[in-house]
Amino acid sequence: MNPTGTAAPVPGNKPSGRGFLRRFRRHRFAMAGLAIVLVLAFCCYFANIVAPFAQNDQHLLLGATPPSWRHLLGTDQLGRDYLTEILYAGRLSLTIGLSVAVLSTVVGTVLGVIAGYAGRWIGEVVMRITDLFLVVPPLAVLAVALQGLGRSYLIIVLVLAGIGWTVIARVVRGEVLALRERAYVDAALVLGASHLRIVLRHLLPNLAGVAAVSVSVNVATSIILESTLSFLGFGVRPPQSSWGNMLSQASGYVGTPQGYLLYFPGLAILITVLAVSFVGDGLRDAFDPRRKQ
């Protein structure tokens, strides 16, 4: 009927309906990262099944021993199996990392979109508040806030998220400022779409990549920030444990034969952070249908 059939071949049997998964699966590092995160999370949250020993199973006479077949990661100064302790501590670290990342990304994205899309004085007010949060050194705020509010891990999450949203808000605002000038926003407008609809249907899908990266970066930074806090003594307190406060308790062993007490929680943090970043990378690429490989 018309000669356009030749204009572009229809990609044959490619499952274009599942493009997102297909694109993600092609990203090897992301797949590896996802596997690591899932295994790690499984081991931590099901530590009562997976861990070789019971939590807080102390053998004071044993003391700190180096890794052996019986204790794969050795034992700590109280004679507890270190692998077991790391798995249990991971619950808190992962929970804090993930919930802070998601919470701060959501808050940051919402505020960034408002600032970018509404523009004018609303945008200015939001961005000045963001600046205010950015110029205050986060550690100081955290330390003071945790002293004043108590240190339940919910409070830690809220406080960390209260600081983490600022960067993503700025990034999202910048993106929105560029996106709202695109012709398809005008096109949606003349199709009769409301502003809410434009934001939800046209802007957010374009922001998904940025948000994914933000989540992964925030997982990493908040696990590290929590570790720093715990290390300084403002974070999680024994008997609750996180990777951060394991590090802080082991800090005295730097340069002694028991240095492994420091390495293993540190390694757990490192692996988690790396794996999550790879996942974030993969997500960003998968959210962009134009990316080819």
Binding site: S16, R182, A183, Y184, D186, A187, R201, H202, P205, N206, A208, F287, D288, P289, R290
Partner: peptide, 11 residues
């Protein structure tokens, strides 16, 4: 401008 009037991330 048909390229910019279509949202690149929506089918």
């Amino acid at each position: 401008d048909a390229l910019s009037a279509l949202n690149p991330v929506l089918k």
